[in-house]
Design a protein around this nucleic acid. Structure first.
Length: 804
RNA sequence: GGGCACUUGGCGCAGUUGGUAGCGCGACUGUUUUACACACAGUAGGUCGGGGGUUCGAAUCCCUCAGUGCCCACCA
């Protein structure tokens, strides 16, 4: 009979099983199997995260609970891993970490540092995920800067270009003066700021005062018109006339637009090129003049006269001071206004006119909303975030970034006729800055003046293709078709508007071009069928974990201290989509559960000598009762996992394991197991068999959540009986109909029996005597307890004589 | 200004078809019951954010108000 050591050495054994799973290839995808597929579009983390905290652990664990469950349910699980290591996040990380001034290094030098740095980052992640027991197939990994991903990203570009979904246009676009690149709408965040509303005097040609209110006086030299509401009686006569711009002394037209709010400021509004989206609209609609006064670095241009070369904020101070001096600043009022800042650096975004690549999304809104409806959201309410975002879209998706490190556009431009020259698909990936163009002269104008596109792609341009990137890691094309679209997309809610939205968009546009027709119907044009949206981690006080607060807990340290199982247990603490606090108490509870499983299994194994699972014996009431409870538990837990409710699954498993099984059932049958004369009797065998059924099911129910301890215990005994090489590929427990206590009368009777047992425990507790102490007699308050249970109650509670 | 979520014992949370309020942590009183003191037995503690309605009956459905958090929005 196997005997477990007294203590379970968490650190040592968890390492052992990590190696075991790697060596055995337990989580390796079976490319030959014809079992049903469950494929996961694993989130590729930014490797530039320089510290991994509990928030990372939480979201990856939560998805993994479901994945492990599916594996045990018999699915052929495809669980690849990716690392997002291209683009702006990485660039900024490297610049900051090494304090690099990019104007002083060459592009290849810089890229080399980025590659080295991301390699380190990927290793950090791999180590942490391995320690946590995340069951990905490490033989199926990608990094978004590698050739595989570049090839698919460039294919995507060309396909969209050919479909006419790609625009190359010169337009005022969101621009980050700090990162010096164009941005997409999704790269911006709202930030509320206290500021001043400045009342500034313009003047009419005949010298009349025209007062406007603005929060951005530095844009006065960019003013191209004044606007009023057409209904505004105060200004009606002015429409069609001219106004003189203060300090700069040139004239602009006065016009009317119904969207001007007469109640705001003075009702007279300054329109610049370009202060905000509304300026851009008016500029386009009324074909206003263009005055470019801000350059790509956020410095004012020569149009700003004496303010040239000043940064925007500096120019504001200067202009305000000068206005004041001239008596043109009538007053200043406190105001709060919302501005768009670049989410990666918090710098207010400007509108700058540059030539950029865009993917059309505005004219696909309706179709994209429909895709959102077709997607199965878990939890359901997260869908509204997607719907909100799509409905509010105002700009096409700008995918080019004026940066160094990213996937190059597969594009050359003819300098003379602006023809766009693309490579052959078979030559992808290409790097136009290094590779020769596919033609030596422009196919349209025969010019030899061909130059490579210098911008790189937005990182989302690649990560929006992860389901395809993942599927294509497998070589067999028939299998690729089964892997795409993926089954599950797990991700955090913050990136619904980016990762999820962009991926849905790409899948919708590409579905006709992909060879993967088998799973596709006209109704299904999604990159995955289910989206599992997690919340984010909070610190123990409920604040968001952030670098600036310094409130993050080092993930590796906690694993070392408590073990991966205990931390994963904590990660079940909040239901899907809810934010979750870091709680050391919950981790401790997890560790206790590990310990309890160890001890309970140790107890069971010590009674499994000559275990005969085949022999038909009659079960006793206690056995029937616990099996009935087990039946309900398995059903509940199965339903819960099917509904992505790992939190409820854990609660139900906990309740059965701690209360029903260990606190009650084990205590109720000890007298049968320890009585030497009973060994080998029907009663003894019934207890053994029931014990086996319960404990093996318990281990399996916990296996998705606590993979290490359950594997340890499974391997110690159950493996030989069940056959599967690992508990994680063994069969999920079946709730057998025969366990269900269908007879209501027996059920009610046993409830009474338990009532009397609790009565006796309370009596002993009140008397402050040990539960193990035998007492001579006990008079129960339950007058209806059937006599046939007296013997059982007496033995189970150590009462010599039970009196009714 | 709009949307979504949340508001249940000291703390963190469950309560999915409406039917006598649960769990964990903490507190307190006990107990070495031949698995486990990382345990077990027991005790105290809540009129389920406020108000109104539907119903024989509501934490659970409807309305309304308030607070918290997140997302979104052109009031310069």
């Amino acid at each position: 009979m196997p005997e477990l050591p007294k203590k379970y050495n968490i650190g040592e054994r968890e390492k052992y099983w990590q190696n075991f799973w790697a060596k055995e290839g337990t989580f390796k995808f079976d490319e030959k199997s014809d079992k049903p597929i469950y494929s996961v579009d694993t989130p590729p983390p930014y490797v530039s995260a320089d510290h991994l905290h509990m928030g990372h652990i939480m979201s990856y664990s939560q998805a993994e609970f479901v994945v492990r469950y599916k594996r045990m349910r018999g699915y052929n699980v495809y669980y690849p891993m990716g690392f997002d290591d291209n683009g702006l996040p990485t660039e900024r990380f490297v610049e900051k970490k090494y304090k690099i001034d990019k104007s002083k290094v060459t592009r290849p030098e810089f890229v080399k540092i980025c590659l080295e740095e991301t390699k380190k980052g990927a290793q950090n992640y791999k180590d942490l995920w391995t320690a946590l027991g995340i069951s990905v197939d490490w033989s199926k990994t990608y990094s978004t800067i590698n050739e595989h991903c570049q090839q698919i990203s460039q294919w995507s570009f060309i396909d969209l270009y050919k479909q006419g979904k790609m625009l190359y246009k010169e337009e005022p676009t969101f621009w980050c003066p700090k990162c010096q690149t164009a941005l997409a709408q999704a790269d911006l965040e709202d930030k509320e700021e206290k500021g001043k509303l400045n009342y500034v005097n313009f003047s009419s040609p005949d010298g009349k005062k025209l007062q406007i209110a603005t929060t951005r006086p530095e844009l006065i030299p960019a003013c191209v018109a004044l606007f009023v509401n057409p209904e505004d009686k105060r200004y009606r006569d002015l429409v069609g006339k001219k106004a003189k711009v203060p300090l700069f002394d040139y004239e602009v037209p006065i016009m009317a637009d119904p969207l001007v709010d007469p109640e705001f400021g003075t009702g007279l509004m300054m329109v610049c090129t370009w202060g905000d989206a509304e300026d851009v609209r008016k500029w386009k609609e009324y074909k206003l003049e263009t005055r470019k006064i801000v350059d790509t670095k956020g410095l004012l241009t020569e149009l700003a006269g004496s303010y040239q070369e000043l940064y925007l904020t500096k120019a504001r101070e200067q202009i305000l001071a000068d206005l004041k001096k001239e008596g043109l600043l009538e007053k200043q009022a406190d105001t709060e206004h919302v501005m768009n800042v670049h989410e990666r650096c918090d710098t207010p975004a400007e509108f700058i006119i540059t030539k950029q690549w865009f993917i059309k999304v505005l004219d696909a809104k309706e179709a994209l909303l429909k895709r959102g409806e077709e997607l199965k959201w878990h939890p359901e309410h997260m869908k509204s975030r997607y719907v909100n975002w799509v409905e509010a879209l105002k700009w096409d998706w700008c995918i080019s970034r004026d940066r160094y490190y990213g996937v190059p556009f597969p594009v050359w431009h003819c300098q003379d006729c602006a023809e766009v020259i693309l490579p052959e698909e078979k030559d992808l990936p290409v790097d136009p800055s290094v590779d020769k163009p596919p033609v030596s002269t422009c196919p349209k104008c025969k010019s030899e003046n061909i130059v490579p596109e210098s911008n790189v792609m937005d990182t989302w341009m690649t990560s929006s293709l992860t389901p395809l990137i993942g599927a294509k890691l497998v070589e067999d094309e028939a299998m690729q078709q089964k892997l795409y679209p993926a089954t599950l997309r797990p991700q955090a809610f913050e990136i619904i508007r980016t990762w999820l939205f962009y991926t849905v968009t790409k899948a919708y546009y590409h579905h006709k071009s992909l060879p993967f027709k088998e799973k596709y119907s006209p109704e299904s044009q999604l990159p995955f069928s289910d989206a599992m949206i997690s919340g984010h981690g909070l610190d123990d006080k409920g604040r968001k974990i952030s670098k600036s607060l310094g409130n993050y807990v080092d993930a590796n340290k906690i694993i070392e201290q408590y073990g991966a199982d205990a931390i994963r247990y904590w990660a079940t603490g909040a239901s899907l989509g809810a934010n979750m606090r870091y709680s050391e108490d919950e981790i401790k509870k997890g560790k206790k559960t590990v310990n309890k499983l160890w001890n309970a299994t140790k107890f069971c194994l010590s009674h499994f000598a000559n275990l005969d699972l085949e022999k038909k014996v009659e079960l006793e009431p206690a056995d029937q009762w616990v099996l009935d409870e087990l039946y309900n538990t398995i059903q509940d837990v199965t339903d819960d996992f099917d509904n992505y409710e790992y939190s409820k699954a854990r609660n139900s498993t906990d309740a059965f394991f701690w209360q029903t099984f260990t606190d009650n059932y084990l205590e109720l049958i000890k007298y049968r197991l320890y009585n030497k004369e009973e060994v080998g009797s029907e009663s003894y065998i019934a207890a053994q068999q029931t014990l086996y059924t319960c404990i093996s099911a318990i281990l399996k129910l916990y296996a998705p959540i606590m993979p290490f301890i359950t594997e340890e215990l499974y391997q110690a005994y159950f493996k030989d009986i069940e056959g599967a090489n690992s508990i994680h590929i063994s069969a999920w427990p079946e709730a057998k109909g025969e366990w269900e206590m269908k007879d209501e009368e027996t059920k009610a009777e046993f409830a009474k029996v338990l009532g009397v047992i609790f009565e006796i425990r309370k009596y002993k507790s009140d008397q402050q005597i040990s539960l193990g102490k035998e007492i001579n007699e006990f008079k129960t308050g339950d007058k209806d307890l059937p006599e046939k249970y007296f013997d059982f109650v007496e033995k189970a509670t150590r009462v010599k004589k039970l009196i009714r």
